[in-house]
């Protein structure tokens, strides 16, 4: 082989000059998908039964927006309380104390094992089980006491039901996240003299978040929809407000569409938020260099 041939051969084989085969299969698939979607969209938009003008009329009505507010408020409050209790339960599950471990396991077993709807009904009907609620020493004196009916309103029953149920699921998610962090990180935090709590807050949880965030996003979205269950205990959430309207006007489908569109809108916003949070906790990961604000190392190869 002569020396003159080789560079020509090497040039011809330069992959940057390669032609790609025409993707006929993929284009056909796209054409079919676009056609089906256009047809479906056309059918829904022109179907008189959806009564889009009614949807537009009610979409931003006061009662619907109030219901949306209740749904969002319930979701946020229950998620925050549920996550806080979930963290404690996760730490209990991972604790060295067998009593704490079994108490946490018992809690999770109970709340995951019973339907949320039933739990909500129990909270709402608590007064038939326990007419008064008291604070005091077990079997000893009581310091304060209230009639259950004053304490358990539809609002508190909804919050208690949703957040205590959520805690059981969040506990397992958080426990999985804590277990996913390298043991060496716990040891390093210990070796530097960090207290348990500080190590958790500064070192462990930020790393656990990478595996906690995606399933928590799922939980949050489930929670938004689960709040529609509280309509059974007369809480005026989004679905309840829509039902209240169609019970008067009989415009069932358009009002359900109002609710559906709002649920979709809110969950879409949450998806965007979740991606942002995932990117934040992925900082320092391999391949994240170009997306993180690390000025001196951008483009460094690994």
């Amino acid at each position: 082989m002569s020396a003159a041939v080789q560079p020509v051969l090497a040039d011809a084989r330069d992959v940057s000059r390669a032609h790609r085969p025409f993707p006929i299969g993929r284009i056909a698939l796209w054409a079919i998908v676009v056609g089906v979607f256009a047809q479906a969209f056309w059918a829904i938009a022109h179907n008189k039964n959806f009564e889009w003008h009614v949807v537009a009329q009610w979409f931003t009505a006061d009662s619907i927006l109030r219901g949306l507010g209740v749904t969002l408020g319930l979701t946020v409050v229950s998620m925050v309380i549920g996550t806080a209790i979930g963290l404690l339960l996760a730490m209990g599950r991972l604790s060295e104390d067998p009593l704490l471990r079994s108490l946490s396991a018992l809690y999770i077993w109970f709340f995951r094992g019973t339907p949320l709807l039933v739990q909500l009904l129990f909270w709402y009907n608590m007064s038939t089980l326990f007419p008064t609620i008291s604070i005091g020493i077990p079997f000893g004196p009581t310091f304060a006491s209230w009639p259950t009916n004053d304490v358990i309103t539809p609002l508190t029953a909804a919050i208690a039901g949703l957040s205590l149920n959520e805690a059981a699921y969040m506990a397992e998610i958080i426990r999985g996240g804590l277990l996913s962090v390298d043991r060496g990180q716990y040891e390093t935090a210990d070796a530097f003299g960090m207290t348990r709590w500080r190590a958790l807050r500064r070192i462990i949880i930020p790393q656990a978040m990478r595996s906690i965030v995606p399933p928590s996003g799922n939980q949050l979205i489930s929670m938004i929809k689960a709040t529609s269950l509280v309509s059974v205990i007369a809480m005026g959430d989004l679905l309840y407000s829509a039902q209240a309207v169609y019970n008067r006007t009989f415009e069932v489908i358009p009002l359900l569409m109002v609710a559906v569109l709002w649920y979709l809108l809110v969950t879409s916003i949450l998806n965007v938020g979740q991606s942002a949070i995932e990117r934040y906790y992925a900082r320092g990961e391999r391949g994240a260099a170009s997306r993180t604000p690390a000025p001196t190392v951008a483009g460094e190869t690994l």
Binding site: G184, Q185, E187, G193, I203, P206, Q207, Y281, R283, E285
Partner: peptide, 16 residues
Amino acid sequence: RRRIGMVFQQFNLYPH
């Protein structure tokens, strides 16, 4: 432990 430094075989830097 506060004034005892430790260097580990696997470095154990805080990755985040």
